[in-house]
Amino acid sequence: MSDGNGNGNGTVAVGSAVDAGDLHPSVPSDRRTYWEQAPLFVVLVILWMLLWGNISWLNLATGAVLAVVVMRFFYLPPIQLSGRTNPLWFVAFLGQFLFELTIASFQVAAQALLGRRDVKNSIIAVQLRTRSDIVLTLTAIAMSLMPGSYALDVDRRRSIIYFHALNTRDADGVQAVRDAALKTERMLVRAFGSSADLRSIR
């Protein structure tokens, strides 16, 4: 729960940094917006307690006050949560992610230390199937730390991510990046995509 929302917190920041275009009208009007911001509140309090390194009632109280202040004065458009989470798939995703990050790091290291200087790179557009901002953003973030690629640009309306891929020798290398992106998307949708997204990945 806390981990899933931890990423949700980052997603808000990404959404506002990447999407200067105002798709969500940012008017905090009714009671529902407060509920939509509840996960962000919880994440902020947890972050506050982690920063202090211990859990106490005083920390909880000051954290809650600060979270309210932060959410008031640094208002971000609420993110649309699907209301569905599957912690098991999220843990599976995290494991996969750490494994791939390790491979990616040593792969880039090998490329840097031993590879040829004039590597052939590619910029690859991948059409995702999800319509959710969270899955789109997390896919971009995860792929940026996975072997061979990072997200260079995002087309949010059409759910396209443009990846920059290092050392793609031929069409097979390009296809590998596409497959990896779709696989990452599938894992994230299983972890916290809406049921409509779940149907679309099958």
Binding site: N7, G10, A13, V18, I141, Y150, A151
Partner: peptide, 9 residues
């Protein structure tokens, strides 16, 4: 983990 990809992008 969250900010490095954002900065890269």
């Amino acid at each position: 983990v969250l900010l490095a990809p954002i900065a890269a992008q």
